[in-house]
Design a protein around this nucleic acid. Structure first.
Lengths: 255, 255
DNA sequence: CGGTCGATTGAAAGCACTCAATCGGGGTGG
DNA sequence: CCACCCCGATTGAGTGCTTTCAATCGACCG
């Protein structure tokens, strides 16, 4: 299977190579969003591609910061670790999403990034990106939007962890995946979990057993169907209500 | 007391007015960090000052985004609200810290910002700031650091909410305040809580009663002394260990 | 066809929550 | 100046959600 991939024609014969920004399917979601062809190619020139095997690190806490990474293929998890060795997954990244923005301030990565799949990333040397900023205001603008999105997305996690019960947390998790896959042109109702139950539990501040129980409950309630890591969302509307803190049976209450 | 403040000489007689960036004591922490006098004044020119009375809103969820705000005097809280009306405080801001970065992406504020004190902010119209970016690379760089810090700081909250028990959460909260006050030249061991117990509980994903009990316990353990909102940290080292997930009595365990 | 590891399920325990009563500081009005 | 009120904070008792501990399942793989 993997060998087939290597049978593709020699690279670098054109800028529309699937490995270039112009030819990348994440073009509209990723950093080049909104750039014209010329600027996209200038961005492309500073970017290197790297494969990251499943379960291996893209970077580690404390590594010197040099580059941001965009996920080209695959999935990642990012986690922090305290002095006692307790880990907390702070996010899962999928194609078109950026990794490493938390390192800009201290010039050191603030978390570990590990591939959940055999993955591929675009390596974006940050000092070169900064050079482009001075010449490409559209790029700079979009970069600010991306960082802002990261902040918003973490606020959503804080909301989940600070405010929600187990079932609600898991619903919010599924709905978030659903939305993100839909954005990428995949089915919002059928997808595969790329992470273990343990990862999900860690991310949601729950145990692996609680995740299992929530899956069982939601299956019983006819909200989802799950076979191993394959998820089918049967009632996205109810799941969304649940995630929003509105009990599926009640009308919203305003205070 | 407050009348005395108004007896100061007429403003705007010099760029060193305490209301200008150059004369502001947060100069080294806030957005102008690292700028020379000339650039600081250029930044200063686009900034307006606004007073925000205690318990009033600086902005609300959904308001159109026009400006970032730097806290000049006082304290703020930011919170989100779900459809059911449940709130989650996502952060407390003190002098020199920026508000509104989560709005850049969607062009709408993603949370409510409310003053905890009678406060004053510097209003920074974002489109004007973007103009300055093209001319002041140092400013741009620092802005990226500030956004990155915001991301890191939220990851720390995620760690607290996802991983820690009540006592640890509250310890982490106090240590964080301690560090931030120290950075601003105030005592790291004696400070005043600007928010209610309820706000603290909401922020930490706990109830007001749990906060009370944690205070009682820590007082009994000789870690802190609390009178109303006045906190004295008696054993910052132990508190820091507690917050780091290292049991005060044990040596750190490595896995 | 076992072995392994992630996932599921059950039973019991614990931590934080809920509910309720009381405290106490700060502000107001007599 | 004092009494009262209000509201935030504290404290206690009981409950419950999630965790912990333990056993079993089952898919994948050699």
């Amino acid at each position: 299977m993997n060998q087939l991939v290597q049978l593709q024609p020699p690279l670098a014969i054109s800028n529309l190579s699937p490995r270039s920004c112009s030819g990348c399917s994440m073009h509209q979601i990723c950093l080049p969003m909104g750039l014209d062809e010329c600027d996209t190619q200038r961005l492309d020139k500073i970017i290197g591609r790297r494969k990251i095997a499943r379960d291996t690190h893209l970077y580690r806490i404390g590594d010197r910061f040099t580059s941001l990474y965009a996920v080209r293929v695959g999935h990642f998890k990012s986690y922090q670790e305290n002095l006692a060795g307790d880990r907390q997954i702070t996010g899962f990244q999928m194609t078109g999403e950026l990794l490493g923005m938390d390192a800009i301030s201290s010039q050191r990565y603030q978390c570990d990034a590990v591939a959940l799949d055999d993955s591929e990333v675009c390596e974006i040397p940050f000092f070169m990106l900064e050079n482009l900023f001075t010449q490409m205001p559209t790029l700079l603008r979009h970069f600010h939007r991306v960082m802002s999105q990261e902040i918003t997305s973490e606020q959503r996690v804080i909301m989940i962890l600070g405010n929600m019960r187990a079932e609600q947390r898991f619903a919010a998790f599924l709905v978030n995946l659903s939305v993100r896959y839909a954005t990428r042109g995949y089915s919002p109702t059928r997808f595969q979990l790329r992470m273990t139950r343990e990862d999900i539990g860690n991310y949601l501040g729950l145990t692996i057993e609680s995740i299992s129980r929530m899956i069982a409950k939601m299956r019983k309630d006819g909200l989802i169907e799950v076979q191993q890591r394959n998820v089918e969302v049967l009632d996205l509307a109810s799941l969304t209500k649940l995630a929003a803190g509105v009990d599926a049976d009640e009308a919203p209450v305003h205070h």
